[in-house]
Nucleic acid binder design. Structure first.
Lengths: 130, 130
DNA sequence: ATCCTTGGTATCCATGAGGTAACTGAGTTC
DNA sequence: GAACTCAGTTACCTCATGGATACCAAGGAT
């Protein structure tokens, strides 16, 4: 199957959309994007918002987002340095689907937790019974 | 800051919604959910759809989704065995936000690829110049 | 008897994501 | 001239994720 002329398809392992789709699931990337929803923010503030991410990992995340054109990095010629991160138009467009997903997650926490309890109980019973 | 009484918040590392949110970014989970959108499917068919995932990893993914109440697993008493996986109502409700995200990814592949090229070129120039 | 099927398990292993801690640079303040 | 600030960088380490491979169970077909 030649994939070159097909429309983008996340199920195709060779389609770049799959990589992008999975980047969204990056441990920090999607969190950072959502924090940036409130406007530009500097490195140290970002660190506080995302709660205990090490500078190395935050830098990695930010560089990746910058490379993908989702955020801009603005260095102010000051001492001590000030660097602001801001969503690009592209990055802002991701905000909408991402927010829906976040709301889904936040809304369905109880259902999922309940399902887990039920599953684990069933497992325990099977173990005792077997 | 006591988080117990706050609404679900993915930015809070102690909030279960964060774990759930990140599960969506799992390498295979969200792909599986999207394949299941077309109705129940058996293990081997699923493997083909998601393209070269090892049985171990697929099983892990499916068990996690089942535990979280997103899919059901139905074993048919046949030989050779037949096992069908199907979205639950909860799982189906995830389909909507997930699809929007997938469409976003598929739509913006060109923009992101372009941004990457520009970024990499800028890096090269900086290297030559520096 | 042996092989075929499906839907997995079991075991081992490599990769890399992410974490820790220490360090840098440059100007400003003390 | 020592210390402080911010925004990182560097080197090192750990552990979980995922992959490769082989194997298994159960019954029907040959």
């Amino acid at each position: 199957m030649d994939t070159k002329d097909l429309p983008a398809n996340v199920l195709d392992p060779d389609c770049p959309s799959r990589v992008i789709f999975q980047r969204i699931g990056d441990k920090w990337a999607s969190l950072v994007v959502q924090v940036l929803a409130d406007g530009p923010i500097r490195f140290s503030e970002l660190r506080k918002m995302v709660h205990v991410v090490t500078p190395k990992v935050l830098t990695q995340t930010l560089r990746t987002l910058e490379r993908d054109g989702l955020i801009t990095r603005t260095v102010h010629a000051q001492v001590p340095p000030r660097v602001d991160y801001e969503l690009t138009e592209l990055g802002a467009s991701l905000l909408e689907p991402l927010t829906l997903l976040r709301l889904w997650a936040e809304d369905h926490v109880p259902s999922i937790l309940k399902a887990r309890d039920a599953y684990d109980d069933a497992q325990d019973e099977a173990f005792i019974g077997g």
